[in-house]
Amino acid sequence: MEGDAELQDLYREVLLDYFRSTTRKGKVEPADVRAHGINPVCGDEIEITVQREGGKFAKLRYAGHGCVISQASAAMMGEALEGRTETEVRALIKAFKSMMLENAPVSELPSDLEALSALEGVRRFPLRVKCATLAWNTILQGLDAAPAEEA
C-alpha cells in the first residue's frame, strides 16, 4: 500500500514479530525482582518478574496488555537483559532511555542493544515514547525496590 513509509518506520517488521512473540510472556515464580508499571495515558499495565541466578538475570517475564510498541519493547528488553549482571542491566537501561528520551544516536547503542534500534522510529511520535519506555521504567523501579542479590 502506498504512503505507508511513515507507518513502516514506526511499526518495523521486527517489532511486529516481537509483539507476537510469546517467548517471554507470563511470570516467573518465585521472583527475585517484581515490578508493576502503569502508563497513565492509556491505562496499560505491565508486571515484570525476574529470577536471578549466579548474580545474573536468569529469566525475565512480562505480563499484562499493551500496544505493539510497549509489548515489543518489553519482549526485546527481556531478550537484552537476560544473562546480565545488575550493573550491566542498569547500564543497558540507561543507554536505551537516552536513545528514546534524549535522542542519542542509535549508533551509540551498545552492540547488545542493536535490535532495539527498531524502536528508533517511535521517537518521531512523541506521544508513543512512553509506550516504548514503560517496561524499562518498570524494571528500574523493581530493581530499586528489590534487595540486591547477596554476593
Binding site: 495515558v41 492509556c42 491505562g43 496488555h65 500496544c67 510498541i69
Partner: peptide, 28 residues
C-alpha cells in the same frame, strides 16, 4: 489490536479519535 495503535494510524489519516480508558477505568 490495542487502541493506541489504532489511534496512531487514524492520526496519519487526519482522523482525530480518542484512545484509552476515557477516564473510566472501572467501566473499562
Amino acid at each position: 489490536l490495542h487502541p493506541h495503535d489504532v489511534g496512531t494510524i487514524f492520526d496519519l489519516e487526519g482522523v482525530a479519535v480518542r484512545v484509552g480508558h476515557h477516564c473510566c477505568q472501572p467501566l473499562m
